[in-house]
């Protein structure tokens, strides 16, 4: 990175450290911080969408849809996320390729499963094996987002389902009395009001989601814990210009600070949102806000 870094063995103290912390490998760590943040930012709305769909279908008047919604939340919530991640991504990937294979290569005569091999035609590969590496990584990233969203969507569905039930019955009855249809009452009365009941559960879920990011490596995304472990391990002078002993302690300490800071910021932001949402709601806190203002 810096010009004086060409021969690290002659350096010491802070200059050495400045070179050490700016190696290409450390850039990998910094990139992974961004990756994790981007992943969280993308996953949260997608998981919320899954959760909303799950909760809405669990309330549906159509029985198969209701069963699907209930089964989705019950099954996915019952499985430890780590066990889910260990096989689900491969299954998801194979599922996509299988569908593409059926569409793109209908004249293919060989079986897809050959022994333990999973073979689809070249055109069905996702991404194509000739695509550049960044396409592969982006695809892996999107798969990780999807898997995270499916898992945390189930938890979100559970929270939202509870929140929909918490909206006072009288509100819905009033809507009906005004002649709103079921659909209108759902979208105009229930959905706007349910968030205040859902937010405590959802913020808790967000905290859990943040702390699930060390599992990203199982999904093929290089996360910060992976890099901390890799960088902190004992480094032999044969393979690096910056040999050192077991420094995992320091890297993990940095991670600890990162996660604690991230949690703190999240708490502050979520508190703000809660204050906003409470405004004008028919809850005790909303009442308190109204009284304080008056």
């Amino acid at each position: 990175m810096f010009s004086y870094c060409s021969d690290p063995s002659t350096l010491d103290g802070l200059t050495w450290l400045s070179c050490y912390l700016t190696t290409g490998k450390h850039m990998g760590l910094y990139v992974s911080v961004v990756t994790v943040l981007v992943l969280l930012a993308v996953t949260a709305p997608v998981a919320l969408l899954f959760g909303f769909a799950g909760a809405a279908s669990a309330r549906s008047r159509i029985a198969p849809l209701r069963w699907f919604g209930k089964a989705y939340t019950a099954i996915v919530r019952g499985v430890p996320d780590i066990a889910f991640f260990l096989f689900f991504v491969i299954a998801l990937d194979q599922g996509f390729e299988w569908i593409r294979h059926k569409i793109l290569c209908s004249d293919w005569d060989q079986p897809i499963r050959q022994g333990s091999d999973f073979v689809v035609c070249d055109a069905a590969k996702l991404p194509l094996s000739s695509s550049p590496q960044w396409v592969h990584e982006t695809y892996g990233f999107l798969l990780a987002v999807l898997t995270f969203a499916i898992v945390f969507g189930a938890f979100a569905a559970n929270v939202l389902f509870g929140a929909m039930r918490a909206v006072p019955r009288a509100q819905m009855e009033t809507a009906e009395a005004y002649g709103m249809s079921h659909r209108q009452a759902f979208w105009r009365i229930m959905v706007p009001q349910m968030w205040v009941y859902a937010l405590p559960g959802l913020s808790n879920l967000w905290m859990v989601l943040i702390k699930a990011t060390p599992l990203l490596f199982l999904l093929g995304v290089e996360d910060i814990v992976y890099w901390a472990r890799e960088l902190g391990g004992t480094k032999n002078a044969r393979f690096t210009d910056y040999p050192h002993g077991d420094w995992r302690m320091w890297y993990f300490l940095a991670l600890l600070v990162f996660y604690l800071a991230f949690t703190k910021v999240s708490e502050i932001v979520l508190d703000k949102i809660m204050k906003k949402l409470t405004h004008g709601q028919a809850t005790a806190a909303g009442e308190a806000q109204r009284k304080a203002a008056a």
Binding site: K25, G28, T240
Partner: peptide
């Protein structure tokens, strides 16, 4: 196989 200082 390992990741070198340059991250490769």
């Amino acid at each position: 196989n390992f990741v070198n200082d340059a991250g490769e």
